[in-house]
Amino acid sequence: MSPDDYCQQKAARSGSSFYYSFLFLPKERRRAITALYAFCREVDDTVDDIADSSIARTKLHWWRQEIAAMLAGQPTHPVTRALQPHLTIYDLKGEHLQAIIDGMEMDLDQTRYLDYAGLQKYCWHVASAVGILSASIFGVTQPATLAYAEKLGLAFQLTNIIRDVGEDSRKGRIYLPVNEMQQFNVTAADILNARHSENFEKLMRFQAERAERTYDEAMALLPKADHRAQRPGLMMAAIYRTLLAEIVSDGFHVLTQRISLTPIRKLWLAWKTYVRG
């Protein structure tokens, strides 16, 4: 199996909304973004799938060394072998790849965030850094496009946090800021024991409204000159905003179920965004 085939299988198996936007890219950009996505999946799975934090930390350290080896032109893993040819072409920075690993390591060190500022820092590492790298692959001619990508990554992660409240709590993690939970009289025990309440709905509505504002702020930053090149990110935004609307209309029943869109609906939303230009 070639490195590209390995990354393609990794991306396709995930069923992620991101995968559907890749389908509309030219071949070389599609190869690059698929390799980047496979890297993100590898390091994310290291934290999610390994119960022993010391082993997970050791594997993340190995990935740090592998990124350094890739930057030196000596990758050994199929993902880094697939990604390495695209580094110079798309100006992909090693510091952003290492920042993603930093974010994964934060999950080993921290399961609560006291306030939104702390949560934003985490989101920057696990999502905004990915957004910057992705936008670079899609095509950037204006500096503001990277600011757009950074903000859009934050919006995606805020949506993920809302969708995955119950799933994350079963892993012992709560990404809702502690001071905001206190503001709405929702306790950690309420989340961990899946107690849906009117207060919980108010808390989640507050989170959803912030996510929506963040999408709007991101879109306002995207320069017209790069709009067409950045269509894959806009496709993802269409899918994620539709998902967020579904969660809202369902009354935020996210403690005991994972609300998602069907593959055909994701593909339809991606296609509609693509043809709109």
Rank of each mutant, 00 (worst) to 15 (best):
6 Y>F: 12
6 Y>H: 11
6 Y>S: 07
8 Q>A: 15
9 Q>F: 15
12 A>Y: 06
14 S>T: 14
14 S>A: 15
14 S>C: 07
15 G>Y: 07
19 Y>P: 11
19 Y>K: 09
20 Y>T: 02
23 L>Y: 11
26 P>A: 03
28 E>W: 08
29 R>H: 06
30 R>D: 11
35 A>D: 10
37 Y>P: 07
38 A>Y: 11
42 E>Y: 07
42 E>F: 08
43 V>S: 08
46 T>R: 03
48 D>E: 11
48 D>H: 05
50 I>V: 13
51 A>N: 10
54 S>Q: 13
62 W>C: 09
63 W>H: 04
65 Q>H: 10
66 E>M: 00
66 E>N: 00
68 A>S: 15
69 A>D: 12
72 A>M: 15
76 T>F: 01
79 V>Y: 13
81 R>W: 02
82 A>Y: 10
84 Q>K: 10
85 P>G: 08
87 L>C: 00
89 I>K: 14
89 I>N: 13
93 K>Y: 12
94 G>H: 05
95 E>S: 13
96 H>K: 09
99 A>P: 03
101 I>D: 04
102 D>P: 05
103 G>F: 09
107 D>R: 02
111 T>M: 05
111 T>E: 04
113 Y>K: 01
113 Y>G: 02
113 Y>D: 01
114 L>E: 14
114 L>V: 13
115 D>C: 11
115 D>V: 05
117 A>V: 15
118 G>Q: 14
118 G>F: 00
121 K>P: 02
123 C>R: 02
124 W>D: 12
124 W>Q: 06
126 V>L: 01
130 V>R: 06
131 G>A: 09
137 I>A: 07
138 F>K: 11
139 G>Q: 00
141 T>P: 00
145 T>K: 04
146 L>R: 15
147 A>W: 12
148 Y>L: 05
151 K>W: 09
152 L>H: 01
166 G>A: 04
169 S>D: 01
171 K>I: 08
177 P>R: 04
180 E>F: 03
180 E>N: 02
182 Q>V: 13
185 N>V: 05
185 N>C: 02
186 V>H: 00
186 V>I: 00
186 V>F: 01
187 T>R: 03
188 A>E: 13
189 A>K: 05
191 I>A: 02
191 I>T: 02
196 H>Q: 13
198 E>F: 01
199 N>D: 12
207 Q>K: 06
207 Q>S: 08
208 A>V: 10
210 R>D: 01
212 E>A: 06
214 T>Y: 07
215 Y>K: 01
217 E>V: 09
217 E>W: 12
218 A>L: 03
220 A>W: 08
220 A>M: 14
223 P>M: 11
223 P>S: 08
225 A>F: 04
227 H>D: 14
227 H>E: 15
228 R>F: 13
233 G>W: 11
236 M>D: 05
238 A>T: 09
238 A>E: 08
238 A>G: 02
238 A>P: 04
240 Y>P: 01
240 Y>D: 00
241 R>M: 01
241 R>Q: 09
242 T>F: 08
246 E>Y: 12
249 S>E: 12
253 H>T: 14
255 L>D: 06
256 T>W: 01
262 T>S: 13
264 I>F: 15
264 I>T: 14
269 L>S: 04
272 K>D: 10
273 T>E: 12
274 Y>H: 13
275 V>E: 10
275 V>P: 07
276 R>G: 14
